Computed example of a mutant assay.
Amino acid sequence: MTATIHRLDNREPSLEPLLQLVAGDMNAVNTVILDRMQSQIPLIPELAGHLIAGGGKRMRPMLTLSSARLIGYTGTRHHRLAASVEFIHTATLLHDDVVDGSDLRRGKRTANIIWGNPASVLVGDFLFSRSFELMVEDGSLKVLKILSNASAVIAEGEVNQLTAARRVDLGEDRYLDIINAKTAALFAAACRISAVVAERPEGEELALDAYGRNLGIAFQLVDDAIDYVSDAGTMGKDAGDDFREGKMTLPVILAYARGDAEDRKFWKDAIEGRRQSDADFAHAIDLVRKTRSVDDTLARARHYGQRAIDAIGGFANGKAKDAMIEAVEFAVARAY
């Protein structure tokens, strides 16, 4: 099975071209982030800094910056907006870790484990507020509408996922609705706002939205696959977290649909919380491999990855486009 989408050479895809493309802009974004996470209440920058400085790739703000490069924007408004995007993302991570009871995030102990759930929720609220301050300062009602809508959609996706937890009858359509909301919506908005500040035609806005949305779906599909094929060192979280939290991700949805009566009984018990041991997780891995559920999840990720690449096909060729294409290939190749 190939890890690439359309690459013509044998070099492994990398985020390095994207990192190099936006390095100067990212310095400006980081300055905004560091400035706006400050507070007279010491716990706020301490807790926020734990996650913001925790080794994340800053993928979403990088997409805002690279999209601006792709369309030739030469202003600076996107710096604050990229910081706003990162604050939205960080706030959702703080809240997610509380909801999921997670112990690890990017290989480090989660904020809720160190400071407790109340502090994590409240600092997440603070970062949401900071993100909206930055949107208002930009002055564009259209940008405000795009990012505020994305924030609402993310929350809806998280609630949808919460109500779907431990339900073995979750179908693929609802699963895709969940990841489209909780992950892809912010990817899409992060890309689209660059076209707004650059005052580009709506067609370019929609093309960047489609790029981000399809990349976000591919990114989440790969994340859900590697929960069953990777380890904590690679993933930055405990292997099997999704399994133990009773999440019906696509590998499980497919394995359940393809299993026999005994397999389905196992999945029902596991998802409902009655089969949670290491041996049970090992058996789950065997089942997703036997049914090729991980392979097919990754095949779907490649499909959405190609849709992302096709979405920016009409933009001018150059370093920005190449870097954005390779970022998609990298996102898909993480599982290999």
Rank of each mutant, 00 (worst) to 15 (best):
T4D: 13
V22S: 05
D35M: 14
P45W: 06
I52D: 09
G56H: 04
T64H: 12
A68T: 13
L70W: 13
A83H: 13
D96Y: 09
V99R: 07
G107I: 09
N112V: 10
V121M: 13
L127T: 10
V143P: 04
I146L: 06
V153K: 13
I154S: 01
A155P: 00
G157P: 01
G157W: 05
V159G: 00
R167V: 06
L170E: 14
E172Y: 01
D173N: 15
Y175V: 02
I178R: 08
A181Y: 12
F187S: 10
A188D: 01
S194Y: 00
L206N: 14
D209M: 07
Y211N: 12
I217H: 04
F219P: 09
F219L: 05
D224R: 00
D227R: 03
G233E: 13
G236V: 08
G236S: 09
A239W: 09
G240I: 11
G246Q: 05
I253S: 03
A257M: 02
R258E: 07
R264F: 00
K265T: 15
F266S: 09
A270F: 04
E272H: 06
E272P: 02
A279G: 10
A284M: 08
D286I: 02
V288H: 01
T291Y: 10
L298A: 02
A299N: 08
A299C: 02
D310F: 02
G318I: 10
M324D: 11
V332P: 04
A333R: 11
